[in-house]
Amino acid sequence: MHPRLPPLDCCGGLNNVDYSKVDLSVMTFFFDYVDLTDSNFVTAVLCIAFNPLFWNLMGRWEHKTRSLTRIFRSPYVACYCLGATILFLNFLRSHCFTEVMKSQPKLKLLDCLLGYYIGMALIAVGSIFVISSFLALGFFGTFLGDYFGILMEAKVTCFPFSILDNPMYWGSTTVYLGWSLMHASPTGLVLTAVVALCYRIALLYEGPFTEEIYRQKPTKSK
């Protein structure tokens, strides 16, 4: 067996331990705290994975068929409705994320004022990226307006896009990381990693597709 690191008290340093009796494998560390078979955990993972899949499929379907535009008789109304649906799904995801953290054990290492304040700081930073991204892009730029033919005049390069690509996605991930630290939740940390992975996969499809839409813009305008 591999020796396990001694328990830490982040507010007071190393605890006094008998190293000869500590022999738990580091690889099993999170599994002592994270129940992957818990129905709440599975639901949270499904919500996290479903959201980017949903808005990408709906956006591409609209771009190809203009079905939502025809249903709502306006690309603007259709985009507002899709945006409202995405917001609802994001609130549902956050609710499921929070509930599973409450239902599973806390990590003593993180359950202190230092962990709480670091979590608060991360939430503040992440929120700045999310809010400033929304203000820079506007509603239609944020909620797939380009898939509805509502194109922006030029690429947004102001803050926070001047310092980070896809700041809304990574700001949202940072908020979840901070929320997990505030709850001292190893389950939250695992779910945050799932959020980051799903966003990373979504960007592999969104980025090239959006670039192609704008590449075709001059051709369509002639």
Rank of each mutant, 00 (worst) to 15 (best):
N166T: 09
R73F: 08
F91M: 13
Y116I: 03
L110P: 04
C81M: 13
W170T: 06
L164M: 15
S67Y: 12
T65Y: 14
W61P: 01
L109T: 02
G115T: 05
F54A: 12
Y169W: 14
G83H: 09
W61C: 13
G145A: 00
I131H: 06
M120H: 12
Y169V: 09
S103Q: 10
F97W: 00
S127D: 02
C158A: 15
K106F: 03
F54L: 15
H95G: 00
L53E: 00
N51R: 14
G141M: 04
G171Q: 06
W61I: 15
M120N: 12
R70Y: 01
F139T: 01
P160E: 07
V130Y: 07
R73E: 11
Y116N: 04
D146P: 13
P167F: 09
M58E: 04
T142D: 08
L107N: 08
T174H: 10
F97N: 07
T85H: 08
G145H: 00
A84Y: 05
L114K: 04
Q104L: 12
G138C: 03
L53W: 07
P75I: 02
L109N: 01
A154W: 04
G141F: 07
Y116S: 00
I123D: 03
G149A: 00
F161K: 06
T98Q: 09
L82D: 08
T174W: 11
D111S: 06
I150V: 05
R66K: 15
L109R: 08
K102Y: 02
K102G: 10
N90A: 11
M101C: 13
N51E: 14
T157L: 13
M168F: 12
M120W: 11
T85K: 03
H95K: 11
F140K: 05
T98C: 07
